[in-house]
Computed example of a mutant assay.
Amino acid sequence: MTIGSDDRKSYQTRVSSFDRQRREDTCLTRAIQNVVDDLATRHDVPSLAVDHDTVKDACDYRPQFGATADPLPEALEDHLSPHGYAMQIDTELDRSTLAEIVEREQCSLPVVELSPSYLHHAEGYDVRGGMHGRAIPHTVVVFTINHDEVQFFDPYEDFYAPPENGGGPPSRLPKSRFYQWWTEETRRWTLWIEPEPQRTLDQTTETRGEE
Rank of each mutant, 00 (worst) to 15 (best):
I3L: 11
S5D: 13
K9A: 06
S10M: 13
T13W: 12
V15P: 07
R20Y: 01
R23Q: 10
R23G: 07
E24I: 12
D25T: 15
T26R: 07
A31L: 08
A31P: 12
I32G: 06
I32W: 07
Q33V: 09
N34F: 03
N34K: 02
N34Q: 04
N34R: 02
V36H: 00
D37Y: 00
L39S: 02
L39I: 06
A40L: 09
T41P: 13
T41K: 15
R42V: 09
R42L: 12
V45M: 06
H52R: 05
D53R: 12
D53C: 13
D53H: 09
V55R: 05
V55D: 06
K56C: 08
K56H: 03
A58L: 15
C59Q: 04
R62N: 12
R62W: 14
P63Y: 00
G66E: 05
G66H: 02
T68F: 08
D70K: 01
P71T: 02
P73Y: 01
P73S: 01
P73R: 00
E74N: 09
D78T: 11
P82R: 01
G84Q: 01
Y85R: 02
A86Y: 01
I89M: 04
T91I: 08
T91A: 00
D94M: 05
S96L: 14
S96C: 09
L98Y: 00
A99V: 04
A99M: 05
E103W: 09
E105A: 10
Q106H: 09
S108L: 04
S108W: 03
L109P: 13
P110Y: 00
E113T: 04
L114N: 07
S115G: 10
S115T: 15
Y118C: 08
L119Y: 03
H121G: 09
H121M: 12
A122Y: 04
G124N: 04
V127R: 11
R128D: 13
H132D: 11
R134A: 01
A135C: 14
A135P: 15
V140M: 08
V142T: 02
T144I: 12
T144N: 06
I145L: 14
E149K: 10
E149A: 09
Q151V: 01
Q151W: 00
D154N: 01
P155W: 02
Y156V: 11
Y156Q: 10
E157A: 04
F159Q: 07
P162W: 01
P163D: 03
E164P: 14
G166T: 08
G167R: 00
G168R: 13
G168Q: 12
P169V: 04
R172L: 14
R172T: 08
R177K: 10
F178C: 05
W181G: 05
W181P: 14
T186H: 12
T186M: 15
T186W: 14
W189R: 15
L191D: 04
I193S: 04
P195S: 02
P195G: 02
E196K: 08
P197W: 02
Q198S: 11
T200N: 03
D202W: 08
T204F: 02
T205C: 13
R208S: 11
E210C: 13
E211Q: 09
